[in-house]
Design a protein around this nucleic acid. Structure first.
Lengths: 330, 330
DNA sequence: CTGAAAGCGCTTACAG
DNA sequence: CTGAAAGCGCTTACAG
């Protein structure tokens, strides 16, 4: 058995209350007692049991973090930001990966996490209720909700898409296709299409339905989307893809089909994943500050846990990262 | 306050012992009592408190997982394998990311995790002692140790490097350079160099020191290594890189310097990260079954936690994934 | 079939 | 400055 606070108390000839006070930096003991207790702790290698402490305190210093999919740069950059900030502030993170959301929510409740970060999920009514029942603060990352009680941290998708499209226009392109995400995705699907359309409109460029193709953000869907675009007969000199993975899929397929990037076709992506800098030619894209998004989410959550007050949502700054896949036509 | 087992007991007119028995599927109650209790639980929305349970049981159903760096495909594929298996077997994972190892180990001990998975770390004497003090099973992933008490799950690095080099030889290459990992890394550095040398030796190809350059497994170091190789004046028709990231770095720099891959130079990588399939041309590489490695590690650990017996180490199968960066000279 | 009680390892009023 | 005691929310012998 690992030694407990009682073992320390006995050996040092004090009460457990005194040991506890010393451990927690409260006062109520002589310096001599303190020294003796500290030495005893060292001698028997005592470590406090956080489970027992949590039971009394009703705080576990643990944050539950949910991702639909961890195996991509996007998620891992965010999670590493969260973990970093949390750890610096004495919280650990319980990671949940995958679509067993209902089950996870119950698990997090049973394990008494102090707060929850929900990443890239659409918050359904059911989840909202489960979260309410837990009575702990929640933050949404890369997602939004209609509930005022749940702040979010994300980039302005519509504006970022607008800026990406406007960037292509500024480079002299007027025939611009788009590889969009899921058509019904209210977070990263629809708003990016809206931003694209708005940029075209404001620059007096007619929008053509044949210039837009939908994927699911994945590399594979970028491959397929590129084929669809090329076979569809639309004419375009540039593509805005709603994710780097799709942009790189498009890059691959276009290259396979004999096109030269950016000479024959310009491509701009979205996310600025590490891989966007590893492909040849390196991908021009929209940067999302993923690590910062994670940090900000953790910061907000911890703030809410500490004062019990609601935090504000935050829109993080995006930016265009110019690399080699966009050719200037001017 | 969330309702407790006492609230259920009172409302259902039974003792907490009975509620507990029903909750845990033990026997000792009439069917009628059971129905009444279950209904009460439902009515007041009772959820058991896992912290209280853990305090008594001395089991938290939690596994600590440590990574030096989470923000890469390698780590995230492994962690997702671990999480998947663990969750299926009623364990959650507490994720630690970064080099604050000592601090993490103490944290995991205080939080009473039931087991630890240590990924891509060299197990120092200090960590070993901390782990011993925790008295819980430990598994090493993508690493080894001299301690019989700590089983590992990994690929045979030397053999995999041998096979990669032999593959190039089989394709007719005789002048083969290597971009190695850290020169002093006993896990992924030295053994891969040994495998490379062994393959050359067994095929009667003289080894030349000028043909080997050391990086640190990162993309950036691959860039630099390629320059070093090209400027060093060694002659070679193929490169074996000890990581996909370095291979892709080499691919980038070679392309920048006007070489055509694989026509002017063949490259084989190591890891089979998702990105290896996204670059153009797609990278021929050594596959490590990362997700399976994670699953196997979790399986072994849970097994050890359940029976208290030591598990055996496992060498996972690697394989060569043929894509487009190696040209046959035969 | 059921309950009272002790105990898991802490923390915090309360009393002295 | 210090300790005895109650309590956090469970589980499990033990007794009936």
């Amino acid at each position: 058995m690992n030694p407990t606070i009682r073992d320390v108390a006995k050996r040092a000839n004090v009460s457990v209350a005194t040991v506890s006070r010393i451990l927690n930096g409260l006062d109520g003991y002589s310096d001599e007692t303190k020294q003796r207790v500290l030495q005893t702790i060292d001698e028997i290698g005592y470590q406090p049991n956080a489970i027992a402490r949590s039971l009394y305190n009703k705080r576990t210093q643990t944050i539950g973090v949910l991702f639909p999919n961890l195996t991509n740069d996007f998620s891992s950059a965010i999670i590493s930001g969260i973990e970093d900030y949390a750890n610096d502030h004495d919280y650990s993170i319980l990671v949940c990966n995958g679509m067993r959301t209902r089950r996870y929510l119950q698990l997090l409740r049973e394990k008494q996490v102090d707060g929850v970060i929900f990443c890239s999920y659409l918050l359904t009514e059911e989840y909202k209720q489960a979260l309410d029942a837990m009575k702990v603060p929640v933050i949404l990352v890369a997602s939004i909700s209609d509930y005022a009680s749940i702040p979010y941290v994300k980039v302005d998708d519509k504006r970022a898409a607008y800026d990406a499209t406007a960037y292509l226009i500024r480079k002299g392109h007027r025939e611009i296709a788009m590889i969009a995400g899921n058509e019904d995705d209210p977070i990263a699907g629809i708003p990016r299409v809206e931003g694209y359309k708005k940029a075209l409109f404001e620059h007096g460029i007619p929008y053509g339905e044949e210039k837009i193709v939908y994927g699911d953000f994945s590399f594979e869907s970028g491959l397929i989307a590129m084929d669809a675009l090329l076979n569809g007969g639309a004419s375009f000199t540039a593509i805005f893809a709603a994710s780097d993975e799709m942009a790189i899929g498009a890059l691959n397929r276009a290259t396979e089909r004999g096109m030269r990037i950016p000479d024959d076709l310009s491509i701009i992506g979205y996310d600025n994943l590490r891989v966007s800098n590893m492909v040849v030619p390196s991908l021009t894209t929209v940067n999302q500050p993923l690590c910062d998004i994670g940090i900000t989410a953790a910061e907000k959550l911890i703030h809410m846990m500490k004062n019990g007050r609601l935090a504000e949502s935050t829109i993080m700054e995006h930016s265009i990262v110019e690399r080699q896949t966009v050719k200037s036509l001017c």
